[in-house]
Every structure is written in structure tokens, then in C-alpha cells.
Amino acid sequence: MNTWLRHHLYAIHIAARRLLGTPFSSLTNIIVIALVLTLPLLASAMLVSMQPIARNISVNPAISLFMKEATTIEQTRAVASQLKNEHSQSILTLEVVDKADALQSLKASESWSDALKVLPQNPLPHSIIITLSDEASPTEKAEELAEVWSKLPDVDVLQFDSAWVQKLEAILSFIRIVLGLLAAGVALIVITTIFNTVRMQALVQRDEIAVARLVGATESFVRRPFLYFGAITGLTAGLLAVVLTTITLGFLNQAITLLSNSYGIPFSVTLPSASWLALTIALVMLIAATAARWSVTRHSHF
């Protein structure tokens, strides 16, 4: 155990010395990786910050059933009870609105009170307001229910606006796709950067590697410093990317706050959770170490 720990500490020491031995090259690689990693971090911050807003905009769509003029309130309640029994899993809440109550609500509004005074009778129908459950929230399921309910004999008009649901799903889906593409781009740049750096180091230190092999060093002993070199580079770049993202969000939130306050909707973009950031940095370290191993394996056979 002591020998294993000593070998790894030695590899970390050698990797750190090689990083510090070429400060300009190492700093350039770290900055390039950090700048590229900042982009998916910003995209993920936007995605995480938009999810609470999406939940507050009533993710559960509502369907309004307006009954025919000849339909009584008792018949309306009977239809509501039938829908509740037949589609209990798809319905979150159901409310029957009497047309007399609806008229009184409109009369209480100053913008409608004068116009309603000249009407000889109540023009409003009885209605049923249905809020769909999470099970029926996907657009396809909601549209299917709306089509079925619109064919009920007592229903005159069905109102269901699914456009906002489709737009919200499209926006979130777009951000997820962009986030995936950015993550793939980051992985490619990390692999390319670390691969070329380790290749150059392996060629420069070929004599040192050859002597180590002559005195009995194993391939794992030879490659281990290069793996730690990649992991340390990934760790430093990941931490720098978090700092750059935090600074960028600070400037971005200043503009967002002014805009959101003008609409009366407080909103700001925040970083993902610490566990998510730690997982991202660990993934970058793993990719960098893998690229370093691949490079030293290919270019240390001499």
C-alpha cells in the first residue's frame, strides 16, 4: 500500500512539475478548455433557471367546455361528473361554472359592466373548466382528450390552446440539444488539446522514458504522470470555467434584472447545484486523463 501511494504521489509531483515547467503552454491549454467549458455551463444555467418559471406558468394545461344554450346547469354537472369518472387519471381539477355566476363576475368588471347592461338576457353558456394532470400534460395526450370531449352532445365549443405548451417544450428541447452539442464540442476540444500536448511531451522526454524502461520501470509507471497531467489540467480548467461563468452571470443578471423588473417578474440566471458542477469537473478530468493515456500509448513506443 505504501509503495502504491508513493508511486502515485511521485506521478502527481512529476505532472505538476511538467505543468509548471511550461507555464505559457499549460496556461494556454487551461484557458482554451475553460473558455469552451464556460459555454455549456452558461447553457445549463439558463436551463436550470427556466425550469421554475416553466412550473409557475401552469405546466398543466386547461380545457374549457362551453355547453349548448339549451343545456341546463344540472345537465352540465352531470356531464362534469361523467368526465370525472371516466377520465379521473387525466383530470387534476374540474370546475363547473354557472352562467349566472359568470355574468355577475363580468358585471363586477368596470370594462364590461356598461356593455352588459344593454343585453336583454344572459349570453353566456354554462361551462366546465378542466385542468389536466401531469399524466395528460404532454401535448399529444391533451389534444386527444380535447378532440374526444369536443364531440360530446351537450358541448357547443371547446377551447384549448396548445400552442404555448408546444412552444415551451420546443424551447426547452432546443436548449437541451444545444447543451448536448456544446458538451460534445467541449469533449472534442479537451481530447484534442490534451492529446497534442502529451504527444509533444512524450517526444521531448523520450530519452527519459527510455532510461526509465531500461532500469525496469513498468508501462504503468511511465504513463501515470501523463494521466495525472491530463487530470490536473482538466481540474484547473474546470475550476476556472466555474469562475468565468460566475463572473459572466454577474454581468448578465444586471441586464436581466432591469428587463424582468420592468415586467414585474423577478428573474435571474443562477449556476447549477454544486454537485452538478463537481460532476462536470470530474467528467472533464476523466476525459482529459483518457486523452492523455491514449496519446502516451500511441507516441511512447520508441
Rank of each mutant, 00 (worst) to 15 (best):
G21R: 14
E69D: 13
F195Q: 00
L65H: 05
D101S: 10
H299F: 11
S260G: 08
L277V: 11
A288V: 03
A210P: 05
K167R: 15
V148Y: 10
A289C: 09
A45S: 15
L5T: 11
L92E: 09
V118D: 13
S25C: 08
R223A: 05
T139N: 07
A212K: 03
S262Y: 15
L116H: 07
V59H: 12
M1S: 11
L39K: 06
E208A: 11
G264P: 02
W276S: 15
P153A: 02
P138Y: 07
A45W: 02
I191W: 04
S273Y: 03
L283N: 14
A11T: 03
I177Q: 09
L277T: 08
M285A: 10
V97G: 01
E110I: 05
H301F: 03
F66H: 06
A217K: 12
P120Y: 06
I209P: 01
N2L: 09
P61E: 11
A289N: 04
Q201G: 06
L47W: 03
E74K: 08
R176E: 01
Q75D: 08
P23C: 07
V157K: 14
I256H: 04
A43N: 05
R213G: 03
L181T: 07
I247E: 11
N122H: 09
N56C: 04
R77A: 14
I175C: 04
T280C: 14
V59S: 08
P272D: 09
I12A: 15
F24Y: 14
A16Y: 03
I232L: 07
L240R: 06
V284Y: 00
